[in-house]
Design a binder for these strands. Structure first.
Lengths: 350, 350
DNA sequence: TTGTAAGCGTTATCAA
DNA sequence: TTGATAACGCTTACAA
C-alpha cells in the first residue's frame, strides 16, 4: 500500500507486523541481548542505555511475543479451564474467580467448553496441550476417563473440580460434598414431617448421580417410619419435562418434596408447577442443590444448597500452581461443604 | 545442568517434554519436512512413508505446538473476547455463541475480563496482542478510548459489540438499539396510562446511558399531556441501593413505572420492592432492559427486552473473520433490535 | 557492561 | 519424492 501495492521489506515505515525485540534494539542502537536484559529487569545495563531502550519500546509500542517467549522457555503461562457449559451461574463465578487468580499470578486463563460431549472435551484439551498450557482445571464431563488418561499421559498438571470422579487417584480433586448435603437435607426434611422425597436428576448415568441416590437412600432408609424416596429422570428437554413432571406429581403416590439436582431442573419445576396450578410449599416443597442467583426472587423464596464456588476456585488454583511448579506430592481430594439454605419453598412441620 | 543431576539428553525414555516433529521424524525414519507434509495433507509423500509417519505420530501422542506454528506463520488462530464481567447471563450466552463459531473455524476463543476498569482492559488487551491474537471482539468498558486507540495502532482487527461507542468509525460495531427499545417501550407505557417513568441506571457516565435518557426524554416529551420522566442513579452497592430506592418510590412525586437498565438493577429493585411491601404491578410497574434467565420465574412475571445476544455473536464473528482475512472495507455499525416482552410486571390500562 | 549466537518447533524453499 | 536449511522472536550462556 505504498506506491505499488506491496512495499519491499527494506522500505520505510507502514509495517503491519508488530515490532520485535530486534526493532527495538535497532532503534535504541543497542544489541538484542541488552534490550532483553532491560525488559527482564536485569541489572547489567547502564542507566543511559536502559533509558534509550525503554524509550524505543515506548515509541514502537513493543509488547513482546508470548509465542516466542513460550517457545524459548519451553513453557507457556497459560492455564486451561474446561467446563461442560458456560451458562450456569456458578460456572461463570468459577471462571471469574480463576481468571482473577490467574491474572494475579501473570497467567492467562483460557476457557474451553466441552458441551457435555466427551469427544469434544478431548479434542479441546488436545488443543490446550498444543498451546503448551501449563495446567488444566477441569469440570469433568459424563465420561471423563479418556480425557483424564490423556492428561496423565501428557503429564499435564490437572485439577478436577466440582464433580468428583470416584477412584481417581492421579489428580487433585476439589469437589462439592453433595452426598453430605443430600443426607443432611433429607434428614431435616424427614424431621419436618416429609415422608416421600423425590430426587430430580438430569444425568442418571453420572457417577455423582448414583452417589446422590445412595445418600438419599441411606438417609431415608435409616429413618424408617414408612418414609419413601424416588428418582425423577428429567431429560434434557424442557417441553417434554412438563409431561414427565405432571404425571409424577399427579399420581396417587406423589412426593411431598422434590430435591432438584441443578438450577436448570429447578427452573423447569418452578415453571411446570406454576402452569399446573401447584402451590408451593403447600402442595409441594422444593429444594435445589444449586443456588441460582435468583433464589431470593421467586415467591416463595427458593431453598437451595449454596455451593462454595469461589472457595473451590481458590483451592483449585493453589493446588494447580503447586503442581505446575513441580510438586510431586500425593494427590489430594478435597471436599467442600455447601450450606443448605432452607427458605419458603420448603414446608416445615405439619 | 548437563550430566551432573539431570539425565543427559541422549538418555532413554522418561522425557517429560511433549514430542516434537523431530521426534516423530526420527521415529519414522524420515525427515522433518516429510512429517510436516504428511500432517498438512500435502500430496507429495508416498503412501508407505505416510503410513510410517502417522504411526509414529500415534505412538508418540504427538499433537504439535501451536506456539511454533504461530511463530512460523506469523499469525495465531486465537481470537480475544474482552468483557467487563462474566456473570451476566447474556455475556455468558455471548461467549458461548462465539466459542462455538470459533471452534468451528478452528480458532481458539480466549476471554479476558476488564472488570469495568479501563486500565485493566488495556493491559489485558496488550496481553492478547502479545499472544498475537488474530482479532478482538470487545464489549467496551466505560472509557473505551485508550483501548480502541491501542487496537487501532496495533492494527488489531476489532469488532465492538453490545455497547455502541458513538463517533467511532474505525471499527465495526454490532450493538443493541436500546434507544429504540426505550422509545417504543415508553410510548407503549404512556399509551397504557403511565404518566411518570423512571429510568434506573448504574453507570450515568456511560455514553449509552446518556443516549437512553435522550430517548426517554424524546418519547415522553413528544407525548405531552403532563407526562414526566426521571433518572434514578443506583450505584454499585446493593445495600445502599435499598435506601436510594425507598426514598425514590416513597416521595410524593413517585413514578408509576421503572425501566431498569440491566438485570442486576432489576434484581435489586425486585428485592427492595418486596421488602418495602410494594406490590407489582399495582403499586409499581417494572420493565427490564435485559431479559434474565429467570424472567418467567418471578411473580408477576418480569417484563423485559429480550436482547438478540446470539444474533450479535454471529454477526460479530462473521465481521471479525472478514477483517482477519484482510478485508479493508469501510467499517459498519449494525444495530440489532431487542424484542420487548411485556408481562405481568407492567400494569396496562387504568 | 555489551555483543554474539544457539536453540526452542514449525513450515517453506530449494537442492538432490 | 525426499532431505537439508533458513527463518520466525526471544532468552541466555559465553565471549569480548
Amino acid at each position: 500500500m505504498r506506491d505499488d501495492d506491496a512495499a519491499p521489506e527494506s522500505a520505510t515505515g507502514n509495517r503491519r507486523k508488530p515490532p520485535t525485540i530486534n526493532d527495538v534494539a535497532q532503534r535504541a542502537g543497542v544489541s538484542v541481548g541488552t534490550v532483553s536484559n532491560v525488559l527482564n529487569h536485569r541489572s547489567t545495563v547502564s542507566a543511559a542505555r536502559r533509558e534509550r531502550v525503554l524509550q524505543a519500546v515506548d515509541e514502537l509500542g513493543f509488547s513482546g511475543s508470548m509465542l516466542a517467549k513460550g517457545m524459548r522457555a519451553q513453557s507457556n503461562s497459560l492455564v486451561g479451564l474446561c467446563v461442560p457449559h458456560t451458562a450456569f451461574a456458578n460456572l461463570a463465578a468459577l471462571a471469574d474467580t480463576l481468571d482473577e487468580r490467574a491474572v494475579g499470578a501473570d497467567y492467562e486463563l483460557i476457557q474451553v467448553v466441552s458441551r457435555y460431549d466427551s469427544r469434544r472435551e478431548l479434542s479441546r484439551i488436545r488443543r490446550l496441550i498444543a498451546y503448551r498450557a501449563a495446567g488444566l482445571i477441569i469440570v469433568p464431563s459424563l465420561d471423563p476417563k479418556p480425557v483424564l488418561d490423556h492428561c496423565y499421559k501428557a503429564k499435564l498438571p490437572t485439577v478436577i473440580i466440582n464433580r468428583l470422579v470416584p477412584d481417581e487417584r492421579r489428580f487433585d480433586q476439589v469437589t462439592i460434598d453433595h452426598d453430605k448435603a443430600i443426607y443432611d437435607a433429607s434428614r431435616q426434611l424427614l424431621a419436618w414431617g416429609h415422608r416421600h422425597i423425590t430426587l430430580a436428576v438430569q444425568f442418571p448415568a453420572l457417577s455423582v448421580t448414583r452417589q446422590r441416590i445412595d445418600s438419599l437412600s441411606r438417609a431415608v432408609g435409616g429413618f424408617g417410619g414408612g418414609a419413601r424416596w424416588g428418582v425423577l429422570e428429567c431429560g434434557l428437554d424442557e417441553e417434554r419435562f412438563k409431561d414427565i413432571f405432571a404425571s409424577h406429581v399427579r399420581r396417587r403416590d406423589a412426593p411431598s418434596v422434590i430435591i432438584a439436582s441443578n438450577s436448570t431442573v429447578t427452573s423447569w419445576i418452578l415453571q411446570s408447577a406454576r402452569s399446573l396450578g401447584i402451590r408451593m410449599p403447600d402442595d409441594l416443597s422444593l429444594l435445589s442443590l444449586e443456588e441460582p442467583e435468583w433464589a431470593l426472587l421467586t415467591e416463595p423464596q427458593l431453598s437451595a444448597v449454596l455451593q462454595p464456588t469461589r472457595e473451590i476456585g481458590r483451592i483449585a488454583w493453589d493446588l494447580l500452581l503447586k503442581r505446575v511448579e513441580g510438586s510431586a506430592e500425593e494427590p489430594v481430594s478435597i471436599r467442600c461443604e455447601g450450606r443448605i439454605n432452607f427458605r419458603g419453598s420448603v414446608a416445615r412441620g405439619t
